[in-house]
Each structure stands twice: as structure tokens, then as C-alpha cells.
Amino acid sequence: MGTHLITGAGSGIGAAVAARLQERGDDIWLLARNAQRAELLRRRFPGCQTLIGDLAVPDRLSWALGQQTQPVRLNSLLHIAGMVELGGIGDLGTKVWNETLAVNLVAPAELTRLFLPTLRVSRGHVVFVNSGAGLAAHAEWGVYAASKFGLRAVADSLRAEEQANSVRVTTVYPGRTATPMQQKVRAQEGLPYDADAFIAPESVATAILTALDLPRDADLTEITVRPGR
């Protein structure tokens, strides 16, 4: 039985991963933006532990987490939370850039830094749920893609730095997945949303758990998940 800290467990891929881990008897710690959302998570996942920290304000994460009881053992840190705002480079100002980079890039890097000592003791695993936009940038996706390209760099550097400590690092690149974020994207694109046209969150969760459960003689460093239809 392992202990896992998950961001983004309120919906989509994060919720699917949290459910799968809890169903098999693992301990889950869920990061919430505020006390109200933490209470909602505890109701949805009875028996879970919660931590409160706002990914939109990464400078405050160290202080916020320092005021709370933290896991003494951690088998994995799962970065699944994220945000997206579409728009042209010539249209989106610094507010969108700063918010997107804070949530998608700086906060995961800071959380990793804060929990690395615990992960090292447990020879744990850091999973970054990235995006197809972390491999190729398209029109109107520049801000989001920049944050995901940066996240890939964080993962690659971390993997090289922590190899001697036996901390495994995996990046998962899902294609379009049936999540509330995808609903927002389709609305911004002016297109209809049909959940059946996209990857199920549970399928991405299966890929993540496969990486977590892989025997120590092998390592899944990158996983690309694409729609099968």
C-alpha cells in the first residue's frame, strides 16, 4: 500500500486517479485551493487526507504547507492540476501569462522541491501530467504550450538530477480528454463538446498507474496517450 499526493483531484484525470488509488487501498493526500474545496474532496473521497495550498500563488506554498501536517512517507507526487486560456500571442497580456505559468509550471516545480526530501527517503515517483501541447504548439495555444514545454524541461532535468536518489520521473502527454478543462477549451474554440469523442479520464489514469506500478528494473519516462477512435 502506497501513499500518494495528488493535485487536481476535484475532477477529470485527477479524480479518476484518486478513485483508482483509493479503491485499491492506497492512502491519498489531496491538495486543495482552499478549505471549502478541501471539505468537498473529503466528502468525495472519504478517508483521504487534504492539504491546502493555492497553485496560483506558488510563492505562498512553502508557508502554507509549513502550517499543516504533511505525509511522513510519500510514494508518489502526482501533478495533474492545470489551467488553460486560449488566445493569440498578440492578444493575451501578462495577466494570462503569469496565471498560466504559475499554475502549470512554477507551482509543480515548487511542490516538487518541497516534497523531494520525503520522496527521496521513499525512493518515490514524480508524475507530471503534461499535454499534447507540451510536444507541439499550435495557433492560439502559445501560452498554454509554453507552460507545458517548460514542464517537460522540469521533468527532464529532475529525472537526471534525482537518478542517484532512485526517484523516478514520468511525463504523461494525454491527447484531448473528456474533462471540464476540455469543455472550456471547446467553448473557447466555438465548437460543441462531445465527451465520447475524447479519451476517458479513466484511460489516462490507467496509464499513470501503469507507470507507478512498474517494477524497479524498468522506468516509464514518457507516456503519450492518444484517442483510439
Score class of each variant (00 low, 15 high):
Arg43Gln: 15
Asp196Glu: 11
Asp156Trp: 02
Pro227Ala: 13
Leu209Asp: 00
Ser131Glu: 14
Phe128Gln: 11
Arg20Phe: 00
Asp194Trp: 13
Ala107Ser: 13
Ala146Ser: 15
Arg152Thr: 15
Ala64Gly: 07
Ala137Asp: 02
Thr224Phe: 04
Pro108Lys: 08
Val204Ser: 13
Trp63Glu: 15
Gln182Trp: 01
Gln70Lys: 07
Glu161Ala: 12
Ile223Val: 15
Val185Asp: 09
Trp97Asp: 05
Leu209Pro: 06
Phe45Asn: 07
Arg226Trp: 06
Gly2Met: 11
Arg229Met: 05
Ala102Ile: 03
His125Arg: 11
Arg60Lys: 10
Tyr144Asp: 04
Ala195Lys: 12
Arg186Lys: 15
Val96Pro: 02
Val57Ala: 13
Thr94Ile: 08
Tyr144Arg: 06
Glu202Gln: 14
Gly88Glu: 12
Val96Leu: 02
Ala164Asn: 08
Leu41Tyr: 07
Arg216Gly: 00
Gln182Cys: 10
Leu74His: 07
Leu5Gln: 04
Thr171Glu: 11
Val167Gln: 13
Ala200Tyr: 00
Leu191His: 09
Asp217Gln: 05
Met181Cys: 06
Ala155Val: 00
Gln182Pro: 03
Leu212Cys: 00
Ala164Leu: 04
Asp59Pro: 00
Gly228His: 07
Trp97Val: 04
Glu110His: 05
Leu135Asn: 13
Gln68Lys: 03
Arg44Gly: 12
Thr206Gln: 11
Ala9Glu: 02
Pro58Val: 04
Arg216Gln: 09
Ala133Pro: 03
Pro201Ser: 10
Val57Pro: 01
Asp156Met: 02
Leu86Arg: 14
Val154Leu: 09
Val106Tyr: 14
Trp141Met: 12
Ala35Ser: 15
Thr69Tyr: 01
Phe128Pro: 03
Ala133Lys: 03
Ser11Tyr: 03
Lys184Ile: 12
Gly87Met: 12
Lys148Gly: 10
Leu51Cys: 13
Ala32Met: 08
Val129Trp: 01
Ala81Trp: 04
Tyr193Ala: 09
Val126Gln: 11
Arg37Trp: 04
Gln183Ile: 06
Thr224Gly: 12
Gly142Val: 10
Gly124Trp: 00
Val106Lys: 15
Phe198Ala: 09
Leu5Thr: 06
Leu135Val: 09
Pro58Met: 04
Gly88Ser: 14
Ala102Leu: 05
Arg43Met: 11
Gln188Asn: 06
Thr50Met: 06
Leu61Phe: 09
Ala109Trp: 14
Arg152Met: 08
Leu92Phe: 02
Ala107Leu: 03
Gly124His: 01
Gln182Glu: 14
Leu77Asn: 04
Ala160Asn: 10
Arg113Thr: 11
His138Pro: 00
Thr224Gln: 13
Ala145Cys: 12
Ala109Gln: 14
Ala15Ile: 06
Ala218Cys: 09
Leu220Asp: 02
Thr69His: 05
Leu135Pro: 05
Ala155His: 00
Ala195Gly: 11
Gly134Ser: 04
Ala109Leu: 15
Val167Met: 14
Thr210Pro: 00
Gly90His: 12
Phe198Thr: 09
Leu214Gln: 06
Arg186Ala: 15
Ala207Met: 03
Gly2Trp: 01
Ala155Cys: 01
Leu30Gly: 04
Gly142Arg: 08
Val96Ile: 13
Tyr193Val: 10
Ala38Ile: 05
Leu40Ser: 14
Thr100Pro: 03
Ala164Gly: 10
Gly228Cys: 08
Gln183Ala: 14
Ile52Arg: 14
Ala195Trp: 05
Arg73Gln: 15
Leu191Met: 13
Leu214Tyr: 01
Gln67Val: 07
